[in-house]
Design a protein around this nucleic acid. Structure first.
Lengths: 226, 226, 226, 226
DNA sequence: TATGAATGAGATTTCATTCAT
DNA sequence: TATGAATGAAATCTCATTCAT
């Protein structure tokens, strides 16, 4: 994850003489922000290997050498983008959490947030889907992927907890549900996020599952026959 | 990856000493098969971009030039691997189809086949998961990805048909179920196929869903409390 | 030049048992002929470097390995083509020589032969033009080029001799005329042989020069001035 | 070819030790010029195909990658060299043009310029001769060759115009003279520019032609016969 | 006489990264 | 903070040639 000492620089330690105009650090921070946004799009579209510093630099109207002022290497830029993307997504996820709401409401709420995010900035989902594959491949990126998995598990555990408390989820089904959510979210991100209609349909499918009416147990066959 | 020594002991120095000209008693068909198997592993592990002809050739005990005798380009090799992998998977899927069986039985049957395949040759799922991402990125590979999607849709349509006939799937839920299966299989392949235990748990989750007992509708909360 | 022992093989030395059908050596000789003709075209079009054995072999409906049965290397094939082309051209040139004819008649005769050859088989001129450049480049081919130059000089010397004897060429102009012919033929081959109309026009220009009426001596300037 | 040592003695080991990063006090313009000059020589000697970026880079004391900083591809470098060479030649040609001078004076003037250029930098003529052949072969270079032809035709048209005005060239001989000049210049460049003595002799031959005294009309045969 | 299956050398090009300015 | 000019490593692909069959 390694968020490189963002606020712990001697920067803030020497604020005596504040002069007019935008202090240089602010400019640097804006540039950093711009690079992150542009890089996310490029990484999402091309993948880690195929993405080049040149393309990112061009889109950011700078030279590749300038990139190196802000990030010490391609790897670090990538990790920064990943950290940033995860933060964006989960900070939105957090807003959905509601101790009063049911498990079903909260899960669907989270899925709707992914849908909204796809609408607002498709590169987020695209990047995160791609990152799952890309990071698995590079030994030097894999640690960050594990962090992300842990983060996700922990987040959904909280929702599942609510389900167990409310009786929606049987205690012995905790892990089953966790795995179901993991697969479903990964699948939706990887295979469906290109098409918002299909993506929405998947959410409806989950709603139907939660309501126990996506499929009938085979025993109903008789009833239909009658 | 670890090129399986193929019965040649380390006795006579590393790989079978390569010499110029045609090697004795070698048939193109066999070599092609060997390349496909090895390439699948490398593409799965590294991805299309990061995989190099050199690594594939080394593992296959040949030169990169020899690769070009069998496949006209990296792209063609990749597409051949993809075609081959899909064929292997679906030929196993087909065996599960059973007009007598219920929708649930057939779907779980297919998922169990994916589980067995993971056991027998993990590179199949790994490759296909990676390919979804990789092919989306390269305009020159995307056509094959679309073929694969069409193929999958068609295959599961047949199973869903059975469900509709048996009453397990309401006719108006056809698309919802199709999307659910797509997301679930993609998610399992992409996010879970590294860990067979978790993968199996996902299958149990689907079983529970099909039996309508993964979660209880929130209304049941009271009942449990009583 | 090295015409590799065409007729000096033990082949002809053991003719006792002549059996029915085309003897194998004849087949080989036909194939050789076919290769030479095809290779000339390819070398003419692509040049020595860019021409590949594969293209030649494909056009001759064989494999590159088969080429090596007939010619020991690319270089040898090239030299054989060159030798063969020169032979074809000069054997036609020789037919023009006529002790009775004037220098002018013989020179124009030769030029007309080049024109006819262009018509019959454009690859001859194209190849020879290209060869001038190609052979200069490769140290291992340059000897053959020098042979060719010597051959050409000698040939035209004979025509110039006729001119000197007839008084058309002043003895002290021998070298001037030789150089003029060399430049003119090279220039026509290299720069004009793509367009037969232009090529013919060049011949007319030489006719005019020989008749002393391509340009007027500058002395006519006075007339204009007056 | 022999990369002219550029004042660096063999004292401190071979070329100026290359190090990573930007070399001190180097300007792209200068480097570009150096590359053009060296590349011209290599292309002249080897031809387009056989010339390698490596050889050019080595002679220019840089890496092949550095070449790509200045020229986007081998093709572009070649075209730049061609453009540059043509410019050098024709800017010298232009200096000869003189509205006061006769056709003969101007033509011989141009030929003398080619002779001087051969003296000053033989690679110019060598390159341009080779380029005629090389560009004809590559479909992607041929456009530039056509430009060059058009340029040449236009240039000599102006000289011929002077001849027509002065009465040296009959109006109906315009095209004949144009073709003669084309063939002569091409032939001199391609076949004679290696040997300055021979090259000069060709100029004398043209002088003789212009003066109408290279050869006598065959009518003089009678005189000899008598 | 020829094909089939390979090698080894090398070419063009790309790219992350570096260092002077 | 950024650009300009380079390096070094590596990747894909091509091609003459070889040797078993």
């Amino acid at each position: 994850m390694a968020a490189p000492g963002k606020a712990s620089r001697p920067t803030d330690a020497s604020p005596p003489v504040r002069r007019l105009g935008r202090p240089p650090q602010v400019k640097a921070r804006d540039t950093r922000r711009r690079i992150l946004d542009i890089a996310r799009g490029v990484y999402a579209e091309r993948g880690y290997e195929a993405a080049t510093n040149k393309e990112i630099a061009d889109l950011a109207f700078m030279t590749t050498a300038a990139l190196y002022y802000h990030f010490p290497s391609k790897r670090d830029l990538y990790l920064a983008v990943h950290e940033d993307a995860r933060e964006q997504v989960y900070s939105r996820f957090e807003e959905v959490l509601d101790p009063e709401a049911s498990f079903a409401e909260q899960l669907i709420g989270v899925l709707m947030v992914t849908h909204e995010l796809n609408e607002e900035d498709p590169t987020l989902a695209q990047f995160l889907a791609a990152a799952r594959t890309d990071m698995k491949r590079r030994p030097d990126l894999i640690a960050a992927l594990q962090d992300r998995t842990a983060y996700r598990t922990q987040f959904f555990d909280r929702i599942i907890d609510a389900g167990v408390r409310s009786g929606e989820v049987a205690a012995e089904h905790r892990e089953l549900v966790q795995v179901f959510i993991t697969a479903m979210i990964a699948g939706m991100t990887d295979a469906l996020s290109d098409d918002q209609d299909v993506h929405l349909r998947a959410i409806h499918a989950v709603e139907a599952i939660l309501a126990g009416r996506l499929v009938q147990p085979p025993s109903t066959r008789r009833q239909r026959a009658s």
